[in-house]
C-alpha cells in the first residue's frame, strides 16, 4: 500500500517536469537524424564516370564509348603513309619516317624488352618465355629472309599482326613501333657484324665494351 502511494507521488512530480524531458528527447532525436543524414556517400561515389566504370545507360555496360564509325578526331587524320603504314605508294620501304638517334634506340630497346621479349627473347632468336611455354616459335631475326626485309615490314607486322602474332597497335604507339624496328636492326647487326664494320679508332675498345654488353644482357635476362 505504502509503495503505491510513493509511486503516485513520484509520478506527480514527474508530470511537472514532463515538458522539459520531451524537449530533450526531441532534441536528441533531431540530433540523431541530423547525424545519420550526414552519412551519405555523395562525395565518395560522384555522378561521373571514372575509367572502366560500368554504366547501365548503354546496353553493353561500358561507360567508355568507341568512336562512331567514320569519325576522325582532330589531329588524328593519318595522312602520313610512311609513318602509319611503313609503305610509300603501297610498297614497303626500307627507311624510317624520322631520323633515329641514340635516344630513339634506347627507347626502342626498352619497348622491345617490354612487348617483344616474351616471345622473341632479348636477343631476337625467338626463344622467349612464352615460346618455352608452348607458343608457336617465331622465326629468328637473324635469318637471311628477315635481314633482307625492309624496315617497313617490321613496322607493319607490329601494326597488323602476322601469323599467330596479334596486332600491337593498341599497346605500342606508331613512333615507338618505329623505334622498336630500329632496335631490331641493332639486334640483327649485333649478330652479323664484321670487324671491318667497326671504325679502327674504336676497335681497341671492343673487348671492353663486349664485357659491358654481357653484363647489360644478364641484368636484362634477370628482369
Amino acid at each position: 500500500m505504502k509503495l503505491k502511494i510513493d509511486r503516485s507521488a513520484e509520478s506527480h512530480s514527474r508530470e511537472a517536469r514532463r515538458p522539459s524531458r520531451l524537449r530533450i528527447g526531441m532534441a536528441a532525436a533531431c540530433l540523431g537524424a541530423f547525424i545519420f543524414c550526414g552519412c551519405r556517400l555523395d562525395m565518395h561515389i560522384q555522378p561521373k564516370y571514372l575509367p572502366y566504370e560500368p554504366t547501365s545507360f548503354f546496353a553493353d555496360g561500358r561507360s567508355e564509348r568507341p568512336p562512331v564509325p567514320g569519325t576522325v578526331a582532330r589531329g588524328q587524320l593519318r595522312l602520313d603513309e610512311l609513318f602509319y603504314t611503313g609503305r610509300e605508294n603501297g610498297v614497303l620501304v626500307d627507311k624510317f619516317p624520322f631520323p633515329i638517334t641514340r635516344a630513339d634506340l634506347e627507347r626502342g630497346r626498352e619497348r622491345y624488352n617490354v612487348y617483344c621479349t616474351p616471345c622473341h627473347d632479348y636477343t631476337g632468336s625467338g626463344q622467349g618465355m612464352i615460346v618455352r611455354r608452348g607458343f608457336p616459335q617465331p622465326p629468328s631475326y637473324h635469318i637471311q629472309r628477315l635481314r633482307d626485309e625492309p624496315a617497313g615490314h617490321f613496322f607493319e607486322v607490329m601494326t597488323d599482326g602476322f601469323g599467330a602474332m596479334y596486332s600491337y597497335a593498341a599497346r605500342v604507339e606508331p613512333a615507338d613501333r618505329w623505334r622498336i624496328a630500329a632496335y631490331i636492326r641493332v639486334l640483327q647487326l649485333s649478330h652479323n657484324a664484321r670487324i671491318s664494320d667497326v671504325p679502327e679508332s674504336e676497335r681497341s675498345q671492343l673487348s671492353q665494351s663486349s664485357g659491358n654488353q654481357n653484363s647489360a644482357q644478364s641484368t636484362g635476362q634477370a628482369q
Binding site: I130, Y166, S167
Partner: peptide, 13 residues
Amino acid sequence: PPTQTCMTCHSQI
C-alpha cells in the same frame, strides 16, 4: 588490359 591482350598468348596456349 582489353581481352585482346589476354588472347595475344591465350589464342595459342
